[in-house]
Design a protein around this nucleic acid. Sequence first.
DNA 1: ATATGTGCAAAGGGTTTGCAGATAT
DNA 2: ATATCTGCAAACCCTTTGCACATAT
Lengths: 135, 135
Amino acid sequence: MSSTDEVIKLLRNKGLKVTPQRVAILQLLMGGGHFTMDKVLDELRKMEPNISISIVYNTLNTLVKLGILRSFEADGKTWYEIRKDPHINVICEDTGQIIDVNADTSMIEREVGKLGIVVKDLNIIIRGNCQDFHN
Amino acid sequence: MSSTDEVIKLLRNKGLKVTPQRVAILQLLMGGGHFTMDKVLDELRKMEPNISISIVYNTLNTLVKLGILRSFEADGKTWYEIRKDPHINVICEDTGQIIDVNADTSMIEREVGKLGIVVKDLNIIIRGNCQDFHN
DNA sequence: ATATGTGCAAAGGGTTTGCAGATAT
DNA sequence: ATATCTGCAAACCCTTTGCACATAT
């Protein structure tokens, strides 16, 4: 989990006002993992019971636009994660959990780059069964 | 564009009753490209003005379950395409169009397989700018 | 003949938006 | 002081569902 100071510094650097809601949201996401809205709300309401859905959506979208978070859509919902090196998001059809798997994706970006396409974001999503694998 | 006979044969092979709606939907998708619901409806209503949204969703989902189509989510909508070799779907942020780019994805499946994960479906989605590239 | 498919309308679930009051700078 | 942020509720999409009628086998 990142320190509160670190989170506050990041918000200020991006020109955002430092509010308790934003600090809580960003700190939660910086802890790693994949979150849908309901998961974020559940966690946040343990600390800030009155936090509204709209401000959570609002904040997450702002953080995505600023490049701090990455989002992708699956199972009819939007998922949010801290932006880090490209990786594979494996959605387990049995447990519903999402697992990160590292892989070299440079080949993919190279192939697309050949066509003169400027890559803004890359998402690799696999649906499968994680069997007895857990992380 | 695939022949009507080919489409009818495919439906029968999968144990589906051959209805005009299903033939029209499958024939449209087999022509290639990426479709959201509104695009499918627009096209179909040129031929079958009374076709309902529900039966289109219904049919597309059935075809996905049977493995004939692949679906993925982007921009808050579900996209459908004929299932073919794994490839990269590039979403152009300027034009909104989706471009297929071929690439060898075996490395990705290998990496995931190492963990004992059984791959059911693979989607690679890139957001970017297609510049002056068109297909 | 009958199991399956279709159209319509309503309901469902996730996300966005408008606005008045509150807060960070 | 004031630009920005927050919470609430309503609005908005996209998608699914229930049901009576229609159709393919």
